[in-house]
Design a protein around this nucleic acid. Structure first.
Length: 422
RNA sequence: GGAGAGGUGGCAGAGUGGUCGAAUGCGCGUGCUUGGAAAGCACGUGUAGGCGCAAGCCUACCGGGGGUUCGAAUCCCUCCCUCUCCGCCA
């Protein structure tokens, strides 16, 4: 959510933001609603002030005296007026609130213009895609792949996109998680193991509700299976005021992530590319507004380091306005090269939300300078998502004997160097 | 899951229909005092929204939501949470 004051004082900034994100939002309608709301609020408050003043007068009068009864009759009228004014205000307020939620966050000045994913800027490329195995095939075509990751049985037991990980497949997945968490903790993030169901208030604060409701699994208790650890982690400090000295707070968390992925199709959903349940370690930062862009660069570097240690070729995309996302001010995507599929797979998305999420979630810190609460800036990024990293490892490192050679950094976690599909 | 007791400011804790944004204590801040400190004394100390150039004024908030009333922290309904006991169970 944007600062309503920014909207009133500088609507052009918001208008530009909407244009840069190539969104279709009727800003003038929002401004008109805001203006109507303020007018009506003024009316309600005048009536309430009248009631309060009369209340103080009535206290001084003897109960049941003619003066008291006269005042009471008078105030019955005012009370009715106030109720009517409040009734009239309520729908305007609700509409305004809903309208404010349709306004996107402002892109940072360093965000490139553009509308489509093709216009994202390749910010950096690491490693060579030519150096990857000539033997590479898409991971689902590797001989014996089904012995390690079993989609048909997952489909039988649960549904499409819920694979079983078996034997060395399960161990490799666990090795990656352990590796990610250990590295993230080394980088200064405190490990958290959060609930993997959240309530509607939490899902609303991070923006899954009301718009992306169809992307989450909902329980009969009206809880939502988390689509990412970002949701419970961000909500940890919801409605709280932190000490300025506590910033920045850096945390990481592993959770399974559940996504319905309604509307996905084709090559995007083959094999491990897109599944309904997957393991991911998420990195979260709550920072002072003055340092959030420095922290974004650090966050990206922390996520990149993981790919470097896994010796996987990857590139860093700086997202253009049109592909930035509704809530982000600036975002980098990390894409790993999958040599068998000959395509890039997104394994991390590192974003600065500035105060956009913090306002919605009411996460603040007490400023030393002013003594007043101010909104923190929040950032998050994956560090990292397991299945796609696993897919890239399998494809890029396939040996002539049909086994997969793991990078040195992973060997201590996996316990040996070669993954066998037998 | 059943029965009972609760939820008030940073904390503790009064308040059961009106003068209550809320006593008192603790904590915190500023000043006085002191060689310095403690103690003591004085004053101050929530959040949000609206209006205003500003000083400031107004409004809302006593777990959330709804209701009764001229008027609700206080009465009623409902939901959430905490505690105690019982039941069940990794």
């Amino acid at each position: 959510m944007l600062d309503p004051k920014l909207l009133r004082e500088s609507p052009e900034i918001v208008r530009t933001a909407i244009a840069r994100k190539h969104l279709d939002v009727d800003l003038d309608a929002v401004l008109a609603l805001d203006s109507a709301w303020r007018t009506q609020l003024g009316e309600v408050e005048i009536l309430r002030a009248k009631q309060k003043a009369a209340n103080n007068e009535m206290v001084a009068l003897k109960k049941g005296s003619p003066e008291f009864l006269a005042k009471l009759t008078e105030m019955k009228g005012v009370s009715a007026q106030a109720k009517a004014a409040e009734e009239a205000l309520k729908p305007v307020e609700e509409k305004l609130h809903a309208a404010l939620l349709t306004l996107p966050n402002i892109p940072h000045t360093t965000v490139p213009d553009g509308k489509t994913p093709e216009q994202n800027v390749v910010h950096a490329t690491h490693g060579s895609i030519e150096a990857t195995s000539k033997l590479a095939v898409p991971h689902w075509e590797i001989g014996g792949f089904g012995n390690l990751i079993d989609f048909p049985r997952g489909a039988k037991v649960t549904g499409a996109g819920f694979p079983f990980f078996i034997g060395e497949g399960a161990k490799l997945s666990r090795a990656l998680l352990q590796f990610f968490l250990d590295e993230d903790v080394k980088a200064g993030y405190t490990e958290v193991s959060p609930p993997i169901f959240v309530n509607a208030a939490s899902a609303t604060a991070t923006g899954q509700l009301p718009d992306k409701e169809g992307q989450m699994y909902e329980t009969t208790d009206k809880l939502y299976a988390v689509p990412t650890a970002e949701v419970p982690l961000t909500n940890f400090f919801r409605d709280e005021i932190l000490e300025e000295t506590a910033l920045p707070v850096c945390r990481c968390a592993y959770t399974p992530c559940f996504r319905r992925e309604a509307g996905s199709y084709g090559k995007d959903v083959r094999g491990l590319n897109r599944v309904h349940q997957f393991d991911k370690v998420e990195l979260l930062k709550w920072v002072h507004p003055s340092s959030s862009y420095d922290e974004l660069e650090k966050l990206r570097a922390d996520a990149e380091r993981l790919l470097q240690k896994l010796e996987l070729p990857y590139r860093v995309l700086l997202m253009c306005g049109g592909d930035l996302g509704f809530a982000q001010s600036k975002k980098y995507d990390l894409e790993v090269w999958a040599a068998g599929q000959k395509r890039w797979l997104e394994v991390s998305s590192c974003s600065n939300f500035e105060s956009f999420q913090a306002r919605r979630a009411q996460i603040r810190f007490r400023s030393k300078e002013s003594g007043k609460p101010e909104l923190v800036h929040t950032l998050n990024g994956s560090g990292l998502a397991v299945p796609r990293v696993l897919a890239a490892l399998l494809e890029n490192n396939l040996q002539a004997d049909g086994r997969v050679k793991l990078p040195a950094a992973l060997v201590p976690y996996f316990g040996k160097e070669l993954v066998s599909f037998k």
